[in-house]
Simulated assay, not measured.
Amino acid sequence: MTGILWEWAEMAVRWLHVIAGIAWIGSSFYFIALDLSLKQRAGLPEGAGGEAWQVHGGGFYNMVKYLVAPARMPDELTWFKWEAYTTWLSGMGLLVLVYYLQAELFMIDAGVMELSPAMAVAVSIGGLALGWLVYDLLCRSPLGRSDTALALVGFVFLVALAWLFTLVFSGRGMIMQMGALIGTMMVANVFLLIIPNQKKVVADLIAGRTPEPKLGQQAKQRSLHNNYLTLPVIFTMIANHYPLAFASRWNWLILAVVLVIGAVIRHFFNVKHKTGKGPLWTWGAAALGLAAIVWLSAQPATEVEAAAAGEVDFAAVENVVLSRCSMCHAAEPLWEGITVPPKGVVLETPAQIRAHARAIRMQAVVTHAMPPGNITFIEEEERRVLAAWLAAGAPAW
């Protein structure tokens, strides 16, 4: 019963995370699009930067944006913050349930660095805090006066961190860590700068003071960062289900390309919202980036697959699978904490092993996604046995 409750707890938190993320991303995309579609006209209220007319749900809407603040505090004001906070809190809950409490499976790879679960969690939490602090200092430094220069340095910073985390965590752990870091940066922008700055503006209005323009400018810059980071962070949320993304030898470089793809796609839509026509070159750049990712992911994690040759002994194949995989991939898993075979894959008979040959190739030969963190210490020679069997057409004899 405990295992069932644990599974549903994880499911509930994941569901909440997705729902909150949809709400946050939706409002973020909407307000960036609204901001870029504003047009000036004669007769706008004093201090207004532009207006937009929109139609939805059978009605017309007229939005006016004030560059700093209106002349007086409105009677009612809607704040957009709980979507961001709920997304982060549920994401951290998922991080704890899936990764921190199962660090041996999903974070640690003894072949990368021998860590205790407590050490892995400590490095992860420290990395999140340090990553945010460095990013925040970059934004507040003179570099922050140039959006382009800040974006380039920020990109190098994130890619460097991804590479460093490949030296500490498993491939899955690195992707998870980078997703958590980018998400933490985004929500910290909301919690520690955007909302506080907006509250200062409200306080100034109530007190009859003129708000400082820089408060809105700082908030807008961080909001723009969140807008461009949204697509990459969504990639990290789903990448841990795809071994070609997280278990590739070049997983950190794949993430770097994803950062670029996400940025150019958002650039297309941002320009389109502003001018009515987005630059088509962005889609060409995104397609080239995707092609580069496919090519990088096709490179074997080691030379195992390339070296596959020789006679095939299915008894040896069966021995590798039963000794390294079947403690989890069994009708009744033996691994503590796993109550059902992952993804329903059972590898106990020759027929079952052959039926899942394609998955075995992807998970244990092309990539080293399985066993997770190489927890069962499968050796390179054993992967070569699997590779030779697969290269021969996965015969069941």
Score class of each variant (00 low, 15 high):
N62K: 10
S248T: 05
T275D: 07
E318N: 07
K220I: 00
A84T: 13
I195H: 12
F155Y: 14
D313Y: 05
T275R: 12
F235H: 14
V201W: 01
A149Q: 13
L133Y: 12
A298M: 13
F377V: 07
V257Q: 04
P371S: 08
Q299N: 08
L95K: 04
M113C: 00
H368W: 12
G393E: 03
Q198M: 03
L5E: 12
E10W: 00
P196G: 07
Q102G: 00
A247N: 11
I32F: 00
H368K: 14
S37G: 03
I195D: 10
L229N: 11
L280Y: 11
L161F: 02
I378M: 15
I261V: 12
Y242A: 03
A149G: 04
S170F: 06
F191M: 15
G93Y: 07
W295P: 07
S124M: 15
S326D: 10
I338Y: 06
F155V: 00
M1P: 11
G58Y: 14
L152I: 09
F80K: 12
V18R: 13
A149L: 13
Q54A: 11
K274Q: 09
P333G: 05
A263T: 01
M370E: 04
V201Y: 08
K343M: 06
A151G: 05
A42V: 02
G3I: 03
L5K: 06
V159P: 06
Y135M: 09
I182R: 07
R72Y: 10
H267W: 03
R140V: 00
P45M: 02
V68T: 14
L229F: 00
P74M: 09
N251G: 12
R324D: 03
R383Q: 05
E382M: 14
D136W: 12
L95P: 06
I293C: 05
N270A: 06
T86R: 05
G179A: 04
G276Y: 02
H225S: 01
A239F: 03
G373H: 07
I4V: 03
K343P: 00
S323T: 11
N374R: 13
L193G: 02
T230D: 08
I234L: 15
L229G: 01
T184D: 04
R266F: 06
V346D: 15
L36M: 10
A203P: 11
I234N: 04
A285P: 01
K65C: 04
A48Y: 00
A396P: 01
A287L: 14
E46V: 01
P232S: 05
K220H: 09
G50R: 04
V202Y: 11
Y85H: 14
G57R: 15
H225I: 03
V201Q: 09
S116L: 06
V134T: 10
R145K: 13
N189W: 06
M370L: 02
A84H: 13
L5V: 08
K220Q: 08
S170Y: 05
A355I: 02
A394I: 00
F235G: 04
E83C: 12
D109V: 05
A239K: 09
A207F: 02
E83M: 14
W6L: 01
A306Q: 11
Y100K: 03
H225D: 09
L253N: 04
E76D: 11
D136T: 01
W79H: 09
W88E: 11
L128E: 05
I238D: 10
F165T: 11
A122G: 07
V123A: 14
G21T: 10
P341H: 06
M362N: 13
L143E: 13
F235C: 08
S323M: 06
L255E: 09
L36I: 00
I19A: 15
